[in-house]
Amino acid sequence: MKPFNEKLTRAVVGIAGLGGLGSMVATALARTCVGHLILCDFDQVEETNLNRQNYFLDQVGMNKVEASLVNLRRINPHITLEAHHGKLSPKDVPKVFKDAHVIAECFDKVDQKQWMAETVLSELTVPLVTGSGLAGIGRSNLIKTQVMSKRLIMVGDQVSDINLGLPLTAGRVWIVAAHQANAIVELLLE
């Protein structure tokens, strides 16, 4: 794969969470030849993840960071991948993502999204691209990329909460992940 821009090959992107959002954001950035990805997740692949997350049936039981390393290297062996398996806490964020030029928030739970955003905004100087409002089906065109403040970009419809009992489905989650990847590439090329 030939990088279309040298800036991207030197770029470092942090991805917090490798579920439906993170596994797809990582895939899109690897295909776009973003040079360095920092991947963080604590979880293992489960069969119920396969409805939307970028893993395979024979990877059930693997750590998501391990499975992501395998899958991303199959797509693009020319990028560097840094993997952190384990639960990220707010105090780890400045250290784990110290070299990142942009960070993608790809967590599942709302309180994790909250602490990730307040930590990046108060303790780092780089932009955060967060996903919020992606549950359910249809309503593709309600998903937007919005600049909430100087360093906070939010992707989603901002209302479709998993707590409303809505399902998570590949199409709608991937729209958000694709918006996130697109926003990240745009920020890297600014």
Partner: peptide, 10 residues
Amino acid sequence: IELVRFVGGG
């Protein structure tokens, strides 16, 4: 005061 709200799912 600026308030940015989040909802769950990822």
